[in-house]
Write a protein that binds this DNA or RNA. Structure first.
Length: 155
DNA sequence: GCCAACGTTGGC
DNA sequence: GCCAACGTTGGC
C-alpha cells in the first residue's frame, strides 16, 4: 500500500492555469491531458507524490512551484462534455479514454527556475529527462529523486 | 508570429 | 499496415 513517494513534472500554460491560480483554488483536477503517455503517467501516480509545477509557452518558461498529487487517477469529466474543448466523441462512460489526478498546491518558489538554467544541467539531469530532450512535448513526466533535488537546489 | 518536432487521422 | 496530411505544442 505505502509505495515510496515519487516525483513528477507537470506543465501548464500560465495564461490558462498558473501557479497563482493553483494557490487560489488549492486543489485542481488536472483536466485536458490528451496524450497517452502523459495519461499513463497520471494513472500511475499516487496520493502524496511530489509535483514540479512548470510554466510552458510563456515569456519565461520554467519551474515555478511545487504541488502534490491529491487523488488517484479518475476519468476526466471534460471528455464527456460536448461543449468542452476537451470533448472526445470516441470516449464513453463505460470505457473512458482520459484520466486525470487532483493536484494540490504546495508552495511557490522564491523565483522561477528557468528552462534556460535547467538546460545548463542537462548532463547532470541525464539523457532520459524529457524536459530537456530535443523535440519532446510531453506535458506530464516522471522526475527522479535526484533530479527533483537538483532542480530545487537551484532555487 | 514563426516554425520544428511530434502525435494522430484516414485514405489506400 | 503504410504514410501523407493535418493539427498541436512550445521554445524562440
Amino acid at each position: 500500500m505505502t509505495a515510496r513517494k515519487r516525483y513528477w513534472l507537470m506543465k501548464s500554460e500560465p495564461d490558462a492555469f498558473s501557479i497563482d491560480d493553483l494557490e487560489k483554488v488549492g486543489v485542481e483536477p488536472w483536466n485536458g491531458v490528451r496524450n497517452y503517455q502523459a495519461r499513463n503517467f497520471m494513472r500511475s501516480m499516487q496520493v502524496g507524490d511530489g509535483v514540479l509545477f512548470y510554466h510552458s509557452n510563456c515569456k519565461e518558461p520554467g519551474v515555478v512551484g511545487t504541488a502534490a498529487v491529491a487523488s488517484a487517477a479518475y476519468p476526466d469529466e471534460t471528455q464527456f462534455n460536448r461543449k468542452s474543448d476537451y470533448y472526445d466523441p470516441k470516449s464513453t462512460r463505460e470505457e473512458p479514454r482520459w484520466s486525470l489526478v487532483d493536484v494540490k498546491f504546495d508552495r511557490k518558489l522564491a523565483r522561477t527556475i528557468t528552462l534556460e538554467e535547467i538546460k545548463r544541467h542537462t548532463d547532470a539531469l541525464g539523457e532520459g529527462f524529457a524536459l530537456t530532450q530535443r523535440g519532446s512535448r510531453l506535458s506530464v513526466m516522471p522526475v527522479t529523486a535526484a533530479q527533483w533535488k537538483l532542480l530545487l537546489s537551484l532555487e
